[in-house]
Design a protein around this nucleic acid. Structure first.
Lengths: 345, 345
DNA sequence: TTTAGCACTCTCTACGTGAGAGTGCCAACC
DNA sequence: GGTTGGCACTCTCACGTAGAGAGTGCTAAA
């Protein structure tokens, strides 16, 4: 497959780099002038013809310069993948921002999305970590007003779910506390499945709450991944390939349907490990509306405990050399944070 | 000011209605043909000249039809404001969706944003209700892992804040529970200010937690309004006036800066009452990037207790007759929900 | 007061033309 | 044999022009 000689390789890389910068088909003359390769335009033309023949480049029309094909981008990315590292100063700036923010998941996710979008000048997506094993730890029942009760559910991993219930009739705080205490003793460390196979409780209130707890735990476990954070939606509107707004609209529409997005993140990363980067070029056949786009995706977190996904979506002509190391770095950072959080520092 | 005769009035309304539908300058001939007014194009031309003179219409160029001015839209909106009512079937559908969703603020906000966007075919913004008086109700301290402790804070209004603390050294759950119980007895019903003026607690753990509680309460009180939810961002890209993507980009950029958006919602609605609708046409001088846009905004909630804001942003040529009643209806609905929530049904 | 008619203006589209950029190929060169 | 200069060819893009179409304002008549 890799039947490119050194010169073809350098030329292909140069062409793609130039096209990513300029968004314009690159011709032999331009290439010879701008980069000091000791080759005449004619020689370059010959090589270009070969690269076109091999499927790495194509011409928009007979008398235009060359534009990378999807295959070309794939080659470019795989060649560049190892070498790319984020400058240390940038790494420090980013780390700094994380360790200075309030230590809340919400803040981290927003920050990660914002950094990814700013660095890549494209749209970022961050899915909150999904706790993979939900075990009951603690429940609190707090009477708020009249028949309304606040139920706070804490999982073993530290995940919290809160919900306001409306009971059939007012129940004093004291009785709520007793119920909570009984359930805490009974359910500690159990999974939703284990809880639902328990025999019914004698006290009807206990039984009702128990039912709600299992429902809530199931809901948390069923979420294929956590909440979705995005940023940089307008970045992509500036790109020339999206100047006819309909193209852009179709791509951005993906972001208005969290289900689709979660699906995309989940599907494309289920077979990859934490730490490994995935680059999908040209929608990779999965979504028609993303045929003009590429995604750089990574999983983060602690496998078996809590993992999430994050990525950047942009035009196929995206600044991979910037985006790839950024995604990798931020994924690593979030993995560390999740790890710290789970293991109790 | 209102020196329009009946005929001018109907014509102006027709012209604006037509322009909102077609996005094209409307001419005298088209008007005479499409709507059965018993007037010749020539007569209509005369009236149009008058309306142009008065500042309600303008011509993009000498030989084009007429387009409404900002003043024209204002007249249109104020005329239409009272009459507009959402069809009962739509009202029912919307209510139904609300009462069927899970009774959580988060769900309601998302739903409200989604409904507003769908009905208006524009961008929606919903700011979560801001509790105006934060009084302490309850605190829970739950040991999660090692030195990490989950603090759940409940306010009198039912608002909840949770936070993960990392203590200097592990503390057993029992001691945490005792601390929580002491503080619950001490702080019940107090504001942040009242709490901070208490004398120091003898137990250092009590004192630390107390400090964190006041900090958290202050933070909640200081948020000028709650979280922002939006939907329908791509709707606006379909509008012809935003076909040059730069115009659209500038307007949508507003939505990437929550601060600006909150500012906008807060400023423009601070002088209006709950229930009253505000229609800002052409950015109303406030934001340059919104010069081509209009907003329909309303406050909702229970004054003095918890209020929020919601609205729709679209091109000046937005479907006011659909948007205005929708915004009014959804604001009413959310007010009811907030009210139910506060008063305990 | 309303209407018909008319000259005028402006935009939009289509069309043709020429410049420019880039190619492929061929023959010459090292 | 790989490399290069030259040349004919192709295609796009920008520009200018012309004609159609839509709409206007004005005037004079009903």
């Amino acid at each position: 497959m890799n039947h490119l000689n050194e010169r073809q390789k350098t030329l292909l890389m140069l062409i793609i780099r130039d096209y990513i910068d300029s968004a314009q088909p690159v011709g032999s003359k331009r290439l010879a002038e701008h980069y000091h390769i000791n080759l005449s335009p004619a020689t370059i033309r010959n090589e270009m013809a070969a690269l076109t023949e091999m499927g790495y480049l194509r011409q928009p029309h007979t008398s235009a310069g060359r534009v990378p094909t999807e295959e070309g981008y794939r080659y470019f990315v795989s060649e560049m993948m190892q070498s790319a590292e984020l400058p240390e100063t940038v790494q420090h700036t980013i780390s700094h921002q994380f360790y200075q923010s309030r230590p809340e998941l919400d803040q981290w996710m927003t920050l990660a999305a914002s950094i990814l979008a700013a660095q890549s000048q494209a749209v970022s997506v961050v899915a909150a970590p999904h706790v993979e094993t939900t075990k009951f730890k603690h429940v609190e029942l707090i009477s708020t007003q009249g028949r309304q009760v606040l139920m706070v559910l804490v999982m073993v991993g530290g995940e919290v779910s809160q919900q306001i219930l409306t009971l059939a009739e007012p129940v004093p705080q004291e009785r709520l506390s007793q119920t909570a205490a009984r359930l805490n003793g009974l359910l500690a460390g159990l999974t939703a499945q284990a809880i639902s196979s328990l025999t019914a409780r004698p006290d009807p209130l206990d039984q009702d709450i128990l039912l709600l707890i299992t429902q809530d735990m199931r809901r948390i476990a069923n979420q294929s991944s956590g909440e979705i954070y995005t940023d940089g939606l307008t970045n992509v509107l500036a790109e020339p390939e999206f100047s006819e707004s309909d193209e852009a609209r179709r791509a951005l529409k993906i972001f208005e349907e969290p289900a689709t997005l979660q699906d995309l993140l989940a599907r494309t990363t289920s077979n990859s490990n934490v730490g490994a980067l995935q680059v999908l070029i040209g929608g990779e056949g999965a979504y028609d509306d993303l045929r003009q786009c590429s995604m750089v995706i990574a999983r983060y977190g602690v496998p078996g405990m809590a993992t999430g996904a994050l990525g950047v979506l942009g035009p196929m002509r995206m600044a991979y050399s910037r985006t790839i190391p950024t995604v990798r770095f931020v994924a690593g950072l979030l993995s560390d944070l999740v790890n710290d959080n789970i293991s109790g520092e």
